[in-house]
Nucleic acid binder design. Structure first.
Length: 571
RNA sequence: CGGGGCGUGGCGCAGUUUGGCUAGCGCGCCUGCCUUGGGAGCAGGAGGCCGGAGGUUCAAAUCCUCUCGCCCCGACCA
């Protein structure tokens, strides 16, 4: 490809719309442009990167017996009504109608479609296992699209769906996908960390997310440096440290005026106590019914855990009116003593002694509230959000925290969709049984964004060879010098003939401009064709990542480049 | 959806508070000269119904009302 022909409009200045480095660089380097909030056009360079990531995914999916299919983006409402998700998905689903008024959506995911496909064709255990995957655009009308490809409304996703006859089969499919993911991200030059995760609305119990640790990440993960335990904060377990609180030295309950003090921090400053000496009382509505959740003052409640414990559909913080009705006080003064709703408490509450709690009375708190004597908890459970510094739930280590970008997730779905949609098969014994499913997603665009987040410097992107849009750029210092132009063209022909993806920067620009663009775009290898080295019969190879310069005789350049490209990553 | 910010040539911005004459600057773009090892220099030039609609006024980028779009924080979320 000739640079003069390549449609890669680079920008000298950072576009105001972009916040993240990866987003800025993709715009600046001419890889993509925005068309609407959360939707992007990929320009030639961007598309080449996307295609390379897709190709790596294809190879690894095929290697675990995945077969590629292509499904419609527009999906009929009936299928989603069957699974029950037409209602559940809510405003996040792009919906549309055809001319006859039939309802459709732009597929946010494809479980329904694939299940419908398979149920009409798979009849027997002899046809299993079956692993189908697709790579295509999916649509979610996100509340807040942001960070370029990181959270778009239209995004490219690979999803594989597995169908097995039993749990062992599902387990095999799950771990095959898990290990394929490790290979895929490694080939893309990413270090990923599989973490235990919450399965959210998609259902199922066992699930891992593949995280790239980066400040730009929207997720928070906790991990144990000793035993390797790693989990999304949504999922990470809090430890139930054994033992009851000491029963001696209980002080008498005492009411204390705390005017206008309604947060733990204000309270601690006012009373000169530590947050861990307080108990937070949060009033929730679980499917409309008020409940109280108790966590220690230095902890945060994990709503996902509470929702699971209560087995409720809708869980939301109660409004001020409900809080007033339940506690008899305005927001900020709720406490467990005397509350007439079920109390669900985190394990850590069990160890508190002489705690500070709300008095259920405006501008008052209680000192020395004690479990058993002053209030009774309905159920103790792991309800708090784990945090760095907590004990590891698997060993004696201490958890650390980091932000992460979720680039992939694997789920054991079980029979949620096959049951709802009647996707069954006959087992060896002739019994009709729902298919056992798994699903395995990779955000292609997000993976590219993550690679840039982890591989850039002040000058631009530093692509790993494996997904670079081109391997090499040839930069003649001056195209007007026929000697340089000829040498550059000759090398270009040789590289292309050798199957090396090469761009020749044939523009009549000053060298500085061409070097800047080359760095910005991030070609892993640059060959400079200049008068100084040509006189000696040499060319210069510059490694983008290290800026290392190697001067080589002209006739050795091809071999050297080939070695670098075939050697894979430059480390 | 709540809070905040921004819409002025392709990009980045000034001008808006305190209405006023041909709407500016930098970059990019076009022509010519010159230059060629890290975003050169000189000269000339093109390009904007100031997001849109309505209103106030002798006069609106600037004031008022409505609207659309984009970005950030939060809540939310495979």
């Amino acid at each position: 490809m000739l640079m003069s022909q390549l449609y890669a409009p680079t920008l000298r200045e950072t576009p105001a719309e972009a916040e993240l480095v990866s987003h800025q660089l993709m715009l600046r380097a001419g890889f993509m442009r925005r068309s609407a909030s959360g939707m992007y056009t990929f320009l030639p360079l961007g598309l080449r990167v996307i295609r390379k990531v897709e190709q790596i995914i294809r190879e690894e999916m095929n290697a675990i017996m995945g077969q590629e299919v292509l499904m419609p983006i527009v999906q009929p409402a009936e299928l989603w009504q069957e699974s029950g998700r037409w209602g559940d998905y809510g405003a996040e689903m792009f919906r549309l109608q055809d001319r006859n008024g039939r309802q459709f959506c732009l597929g946010p995911t494809h479980e329904e479609l694939i299940t419908a496909l398979v149920r009409s064709e798979v009849r027997s255990y002899r046809q299993l296992p079956l692993r189908l995957y697709q790579i295509q655009n999916k649509y979610r009308d996100e509340i807040r699209p942001r960070f370029g490809l990181m959270r778009g409304r239209e995004f490219i996703m690979k999803d594989m769906y597995s169908f097995d006859k039993d749990e062992e089969g599902l387990d095999a499919s799950y771990w095959a996908a898990y290990h394929a993911y490790e290979r895929i991200f490694k080939r893309c030059g990413l270090e990923v960390h599989p973490v235990e995760a919450d399965s959210g609305a998609i259902g199922g119990d066992v699930t891992h997310e593949f995280m790239v640790l980066a400040e730009a990440g929207e997720d928070f993960v906790l991990f144990c440096p000793d035993c390797g335990y790693a989990a999304n904060v949504e999922r990470a377990e809090g430890v139930d440290q054994p033992g009851e609180a000491p029963q001696d030295d209980l002080q008498p309950l005492e009411e204390v005026a705390t005017p206008k003090i309604s947060t733990i921090n204000q309270l601690c400053a006012f009373l000169n106590r530590e947050p861990k000496d307080c108990i937070k009382t949060l009033i929730y509505l679980a499917d409309g019914k008020p409940v109280a959740a108790l966590v220690r003052g230095d902890h945060n409640l994990n709503e996902i855990k509470l929702r699971k414990l209560l087995k409720c559909q809708v869980l939301e913080l109660a409004d001020a009116e409900t809080i007033g009705r339940v506690t008899g006080a305005p927001v900020g003064f709720a406490g467990p003593v005397g509350l007439q709703v079920p109390l669900y408490a985190d394990f850590a509450v069990r160890q508190t002694v002489n705690a500070v709690v709300g008095a259920n009375k405006q501008d008052y708190h209680l000192l020395n509230a004690n479990l058993g004597r002053d209030f009774v908890v309905t159920t103790f459970a792991d309800l708090r959000e784990a945090q760095p510094g907590d004990p590891c739930p698997r060993c004696s280590g201490i958890l650390e925290g980091a932000r992460g970008i979720e680039v992939g997730q694997v789920f054991k779905l079980g029979t949620k969709y096959s049951k709802a949609m009647g996707a069954t098969f006959l087992k060896e014994d002739g019994v009709e049984t729902p298919l056992i499913m798994g699903c395995y997603g990779i955000g292609v665009g997000r993976t590219v964004a993550a690679v840039i987040e982890k591989n850039h410097d002040d000058d631009g992107i530093v692509w790993p060879i494996s997904i670079a849009p081109y391997h090499v750029v040839i930069v003649p210092v001056s195209m007007k010098d026929p000697v340089q132009a000829e040498a550059a063209q000759k090398l270009y022909n040789e590289l292309v003939a050798a199957g090396i993806e090469t761009v020749l920067d044939d523009r009549d620009e000053r060298p500085g401009v061409k070097f800047k663009d080359a760095d910005l775009i991030g070609f892993p290898i640059r060959v400079t064709v200049g008068p100084k080295s040509l006189e000696k019969g040499e060319l210069e190879i510059v490694i983008r990542r290290t800026k290392e310069v190697r001067s080589l005789p002209v006739d050795q350049v091809l071999a050297a480049i080939r070695e670098i490209v075939e050697g894979g990553d430059l480390g």
